[in-house]
Amino acid sequence: MIIFNPAISLVCAFIYSLILSFSEFNIFYILPVLFLMFIDSKNILFVLKKLLFLNLFIFTIFIFVWIQASFFEAINIYLRTNIIIFFNLLLFINSKGLDIIRGFSLLKFPKRFISTFYFSWKMILELQTEFRNIKTTLITRSFHNKTNLFIYQTYGNILGLLFIKSMQKAQNLKDSFELRGFNGEIFFNDNYKFDKYDFYLIFIILLTLILRYFI
């Protein structure tokens, strides 16, 4: 499993997405995608499945643009959107979310931004765990999906429960801030080094950038 330096991943993702967003589609834009597919071939199927799911939305846009503008414009937007998402999925597929926050920290983003991002990630993680626990409870208590008022009430209760849990978690977190002297800054102990794959990634993004201006 290859994990790129998070700061480099973020910068490359940003540059690649930006140049592709403001350009006409060209075949050389596939180069970074091919590179990522080559070095992490195990995840291709998994990423493609995710991309296929996202295409439900992208395809709708494609249809609308086709009707409103032209087929050429629609296909251009469709391909670029897919490639940008595919590239980003491949780049961050092995990330647990934390790497992205570490990336922002390495890039010296404001402390408040990083701590807000970190605590949002933490809250999502905790709510995911709560949701999983509730799902397990539903299974163990013989809950079956049907179309009746009771089921909708149960879903309403689950949402309410998640809301209350998140309020409690937020209160506990506030107490922890106070107890532990939090002053808006999260400290990471990062000691990332540049790997050969990081250099390859930078090289391929630079190459794409050069090709974009010279072809």
Partner: peptide, 8 residues
């Protein structure tokens, strides 16, 4: 669960 303020 809310005590920890850092990942590792």
């Amino acid at each position: 669960s809310s005590f920890f303020l850092s990942p590792t």
